[in-house]
Each structure stands twice: as C-alpha cells, then as structure tokens.
Design a protein around this nucleic acid. Structure first.
Lengths: 123, 123
DNA sequence: ATACAATGTAGAGTAAACTCTATGTCAAGA
DNA sequence: TCTTGACATAGAGTTTACTCTACATTGTAT
C-alpha cells in the first residue's frame, strides 16, 4: 500500500507539518509520484512507528537522524546501529529505575498528606 | 543553616540563573538579608528537591507553579495539593508502564539485529 | 471549464525551560 | 583606597521540536 501525506498523517497520528519536518531533518524519505507528491509505503509506516518509539523514550531528533543515516547505508551499519540501540536500552532502563524511585517518594508524600489532613480534621 | 545563591546552586545542582528563574516564576521565594541578597534555608532545600522530583517526572513549570501557590496558602489547601499529587501519581504510573512496553519492543529489535548480524557474517 | 481541496516549498512563528548579557551594588582583602 | 568577586535586576538570546503562514500547483468533482 501507498499513502498520501494526508492518509499517512492520519495513520501515524503525526501532523502533516510534522511529517514534512521529519523529512526535512532526513528522518524519513518517502518516494514521490509523477506530480512530486509524497508516497509513503508500509515500510515507511513501520519505520515511523520506530521513530516514535525512540522519541517517546527520550532520544533526541539529532540522534534519530544519525540512526536514520546509518539505516540508509544498509547492512554494513548493522553493528553500529545495534550498538546505538544497546546504549539507548541502558538509558531507558535507567529512566525506568529513576521514575520508580520518584514514584516511591511521591507515595511517601501522599501518605504524609493523608496523615496531615486527618490531623487537621481532628485538631 | 542559610545559604547564599552560590552555595545553594552547588547544593542543588541548579545553575544560579535557573534559581533566579524559578524565583521569577514564583516556584520558590527565599528570604533576603539586609543587602537584598537571597538567603536560602534548609526548608528551601527540601522544597527545591521536591520541585526537581516533580519536574523529573514530567510536571510542567506551570503546574508546579500552581502547587507552589497552594503551598503558600497553608493547610487549607492540603486536600487540593494531595489531589494534584494523586493525579500526578497516576500519570507517573502510566509513564512507567509505557516505557516498559517500549523496552520490550526495543529488546525485540535488538534481538533481531543480533540475528541479522549473525546471518550476514555467515552468508 | 471551473471551483476547491489536498499538496508542494520556503521560511516565519511558537512554547517551554532555561541561559546569558549588560549594567549596577556591595562587602572584604591587598 | 582600590580592586575583586559574588550578587542584584531587566531583558535578550538559545535550544528543541514542532506548528503555522503565504503562496504556487495539481487532481477531482460539478
């Protein structure tokens, strides 16, 4: 299947402007038809979903750019790409750990509030 | 203990400019000495650590501002503050869940790379 | 044939959260 | 007394990641 930018925007939940911006930043390079309109493929769809995943886990555009660049170079960059993902995996692991710690502290705080509120009701 | 802005900056790992910015945004209001210099207290320290926690868990400055505003109003706002924290707790829980899903997918991808690399080495 | 909706490019504008600059004050040491 | 160095304010500048505007083309329905 091929999709116009409008269709692709709906499929990916990314605005048309954002898609063009991503292309400008060389994250994705859809084919063009005879009238210069963008033709996104299912491969583009899978790729953009992966881009979203990297973004949602805190990878900056610049780094995704680097990954995309490697991707266009084909199999010779497999090692380097895996290395990037492995490093990113570690950061993600750390992020989760930190958030869990924050969660524990937040729970403490909420408990404290619960007690305070009870106290002020009684007092 | 009381701290100058320079000392407080070192203690909190926040830049002097950032501390002044936070004050400008009414997140924190340190006392001033006779020469108008800021005097941060240990209470300010605990408070700024909590601000950092809220920030690190994705709460925008605007919302922290709101929380800070309630805090200055004292005990009558305890309920409202606890409500904010409870809502935020939910968002944090969701964040962790999403990151864990991303982690699983990322692991799949890394596994795939491992296989691909092995394949290209053999072929 | 014509209207109009979707698409194209280039470049300006926005929002959040800092970060830095210019300029001035003030206390303490040489 | 003079000179630093830390601090003060006001306001400009930066970065990231969009988001929007202006204006030109193109494809499709009437």
């Amino acid at each position: 299947m091929e999709y116009s930018i409008g269709e692709f925007s709906r499929l990916t939940n990314l605005g048309i402007h954002t898609l063009r911006y991503y292309e400008h930043e060389n994250l994705i390079t859809p084919k063009r038809n005879s009238s210069n309109r963008r033709c996104y493929s299912d491969k583009d769809l899978a790729w953009i979903e992966f881009i979203k995943r990297l973004k949602d886990t805190g990878m900056p555009i610049k780094e995704i750019q680097r990954y995309a660049e490697l991707r266009t170079k084909g199999d010779i960059t497999l090692n380097e790409r895996m290395e990037m993902l492995t490093v990113h995996r570690e950061s993600l692991n750390e992020q989760i750990k930190v958030l869990q710690e924050h969660m524990a502290k937040l729970d403490d705080k909420i408990d404290f509030y619960r007690q305070e509120i009870e106290r002020t009701l009684k007092g």
